[in-house]
Amino acid sequence: MTNKIIPTTEVDVQNLVKYFDVSAPWLSRVFSGQPKQILKAVDGISFKIQKGETFSLVGESGCGKSTIARLLVGLYEPTDGKIKIKGHDISNLDSPKALRTLRKNVQMIFQDPFASLNPRWHVKDIIAEPIRAHKTLSDNHAIDKRVNELLDLVSLTKVDGDKFPHEFSGGQRQRISIARALASKPEFIVCDEPTSALDVSVQAQILNLMVDLQKELGLTYLFISHNLAVVYHISDHVGVMYLGRLAEVRDSKSLFSNPLHPYTRLLLDTIPDLDMSGRDRMPVAGEVPNPIDPPKACRFHPRCPFANERCKTEMPLPTPVPGGYVECHGVQENRLPAYVPIVR
């Protein structure tokens, strides 16, 4: 979406792993003889995001996409693997240097505009919080001026700064959230389902605003969503996640015109047909399994119509394909049927 002269890597995620211990307390585990339970939320994921582009992660609930968002902004510390932002390693949150890189360069927009703003704070204080926290500006006059600029940037007015969050609609609150994220002038913004709590007409406003801001400020986005149509609209590159793994990472155009991984095809097939073409989509059997005990080898094999013996025993590795890579034995062995496009 931007004129890339020399593409520079803004975010580099290498073999990222995050496990959560979700076992019962030690004592009850001893009595009931249960083993420890480990939730493998993110289990070996690598991708790169170029400066100024939008990289989207798409998947169903429990696939680990929100965990990646929280790892990238430093809310969680990785179990293993590396996250580099502008070449600086930020995976160790005890290192002051990593924290400085994080706070300076990374911000986040949250899903729920009703929970992401402190209800007891004035809007202007909410927006000014990053400025005050980092002491980028010290005198109140300069802070006020900057807050007004930010309000203007997201099409709110100066008067709105003196109100409380509950006086605004969902879309306006999301604008406030965006203004706060921009206050510390970050280059990379993690957007965790920023429009999924909004109504369609408001969603369009927020998506347009995000695209405009990206162009104006040269921002890099990691966009997390379960809505493929929104992802199609906003992304340069897309990663499709399933149970802690990336099934397919491609540039947006290749992915949507010729999806390769069976799971990507499944997801594309679930999109309701708004063109009223009379297409009868095939509902897919089954649901996402419990991530505490995911299927061995290829995570998708129990639901995959093309699974064979190898898929049940051997974990697929990334196979390069046009526009990116796919983790699928079927693609590697070239035994999947050609994709019948639903996209014209």
Binding site: G171, L207, R344
Partner: peptide, 22 residues
Amino acid sequence: LMAAIPIIGHQAERLAQIDGAM
């Protein structure tokens, strides 16, 4: 409302939007 819904295959830089809120 219909114009504001992103549709796969319909290439557009910006979505049509209805300004304001209900």
